[in-house]
Computed example of a mutant assay.
Amino acid sequence: MTENWTKASIPSFITLIRDKVQNYAKFDQQFKAMKNDGIKLATSFLGKSSSFSDTTTSTSSTTSIDVNLEKQLQSWKDNPIWTDPSPEIQVTVPKGSLCNLNVKVNVGLPPDAIYNIVTDPDNKRVFKNIEEVVSRRVLIDEGHRQVVELEQTALWRFLWWSGTITVHVLVDQNRKDYTMKFKQVKTGFMKRFEGCWKLEPLFVDEKVCYPFVPKNMEDYISCTRGKGRIGSKVSLEQLIQPALVPPPPISWYLRGITTKTTEMLITDLIEEASRIRSDYGSLNEDNVAPIDDCNLLKGKHDIKERWASRRRKRRRGFIV
Results as ranks from 00 to 15, higher is better:
Thr62Arg: 12
Asn79Ala: 11
Asp78Val: 00
Ser64Ala: 12
Ser50Tyr: 11
Phe52Trp: 15
Ser64His: 14
Ser44Glu: 13
Thr55Asp: 15
Ser49Trp: 12
Gln74Ile: 09
Gln74Asn: 09
Ser44Val: 01
Ile65Ala: 03
Thr59Gly: 02
Ser49Phe: 10
Ala42Gln: 01
Asp78His: 08
Gly47Pro: 03
Trp76Tyr: 10
Ser44Ala: 06
Leu73Phe: 05
Trp76Val: 00
Pro80Met: 05
Lys48Gln: 07
Gln74Trp: 11
Thr56Leu: 13
Ile65Gly: 00
Thr55Ser: 15
Asp54Lys: 14
Ser61Cys: 05
Gln72Gly: 05
Lys77Arg: 11
Phe52Tyr: 14
Asn79Leu: 10
Ser60Lys: 04
Ser51Arg: 15
Asp78Lys: 04
Ser51Cys: 05
Gln72Ala: 08
Thr43Cys: 02
Asp78Phe: 01
Gln72His: 11
Asp66Ile: 02
Asp78Pro: 00
Ser51Leu: 07
Thr57Phe: 04
Thr59Trp: 08
Ser44Cys: 02
Asn79Gln: 14
Lys77Leu: 00
Gly47Ile: 00
Pro80Val: 05
Asp54Tyr: 14
Asn79Lys: 13
Gln72Asn: 13
Thr63Asn: 12
Ser49Ile: 06
Ser49Gly: 09
Pro80Cys: 04
Thr55Leu: 08
Thr57Gln: 07
Lys71Leu: 02
Glu70Gln: 13
Val67Cys: 10
Ser49Thr: 08
Asp54Cys: 09
Val67Ile: 07
Val67Lys: 10
Gln72Pro: 03
Ser61Gly: 11
Lys71Glu: 05
Thr62Gln: 10
Leu46Tyr: 05
Trp76Arg: 04
